[in-house]
Design a protein around this nucleic acid. Structure first.
Lengths: 195, 195
DNA sequence: GTCTATATCCGGATAGAC
DNA sequence: GTCTATCCGGATATAGAC
């Protein structure tokens, strides 16, 4: 189906990526076929290969670009010098950014094992760079005596797990609004480090 | 390869399940073939079907039995009447139980989407029953004024996410021992509810 | 209960016309 | 850039001998 005239390479490429993100999130990378992706994109199978070299590259690009976007978005946030305020800013940013892209977030941590070892290492290092930002905040808070952090690395992992877990159940039409969830989670995060 | 004499149905069935858990955890349900499972089990493909009706049933049985075992193990734990002590007991139980079966835990929350809708509903209800135990503790702690819990449901989900996240990185040979991790996570959990 | 062999289908990826 | 047609390997599951 779907328009063969008027379509540019960029547009089809975008539709392909959106289709892949949606399908991978719902069924998992390994369970989704290139035929399904083609159908969702609105082209025939062969045409996909004008926009990606193979299925693995498609997954890698989605994950790697997601991490790039996440880092770039965090860089736009002005993190206050005060560690507690910085932690609040980080918490709210993380929740909001993830709430806006549930599918991309979901595959970013569910499909890591379907990357080739080289691709996995690359994405892992991007993820560590992101976590390092949080670790730095916790380290400053601990050094300044305004947070109780027994172990910076563990607190970092705990907070990330805590916050990212929201994406597994949050629905905009649910009992709580995004803003309410954000407030409650910031409250819990703050208490977790005793700030 | 593999003994055809001296093997009983039960033994092969156990080996099959162990092989499946290990492979599913490493590569994901959809990415693992029955051939691989057969090789790891030490039998030929056809023999697998004496012990499971199909691949989907195999996954379902693993997940459902895991949830049953988890509930049964929790039932063995004597939860103190005091909510804070009960939360500590729950936290330590959860960490220890999950640390002992990293593979089973991993697939129990990674492979939910590969269940058929009916099977998914069944396992989901088992999972909710487990979470209800934690919710009850938090509800009592809040009612008794010994915990600060803005929202019981969210605190429950947050704590589960926090604790279960440990399985994604914990290795016995790592920087911290199981006991150290347990203490630090109980400390963070306690602070999270301000107990 | 396990084996070998096979039916049947679906997967990723490519070739070549338009 | 997209289409149709196809190669080819590997998937689940079954049949029938031992």
């Amino acid at each position: 189906m779907a328009r063969t005239t008027g379509s540019t390479s960029v547009e089809t490429g975008q539709r392909l990526r959106r289709a892949a993100v949606s399908l991978f999130a719902r069924h998992g990378y390994a369970a989704v076929s290139m035929r399904q992706i083609a159908a969702e994109t609105g082209v025939q199978v062969g045409a996909l290969y004008n926009h990606t070299t193979d299925k693995q590259s498609l997954l890698f690009d989605l994950l790697s670009d997601h991490m790039d976007d996440l880092m770039a978005a965090l860089d736009q946030v002005v993190l206050p010098a005060d560690p507690v305020l910085a932690l609040e800013a980080f918490t709210r940013f993380h929740l909001r950014y993830h709430a806006e892209r549930p599918d991309a977030v979901f595959i970013a941590y569910m499909e890591l094992r379907n990357l080739t070892p080289e691709n996995f290492m690359q994405v892992e290092s991007q993820r560590r760079a992101y976590e390092a930002r949080l670790e730095e905040i916790l380290r400053r808070g601990k050094a300044g005596g305004v947070m109780h952090v027994a172990d910076v690395k563990l607190a970092c992992l705990a907070i990330i797990a805590l916050l990212t877990g929201v994406t597994t159940w949050f629905r905009p039409a649910g009992r709580l609004s995004q803003a309410e969830v954000e407030d409650i989670y910031w409250d819990m995060t703050r208490r977790l480090v005793d700030a």
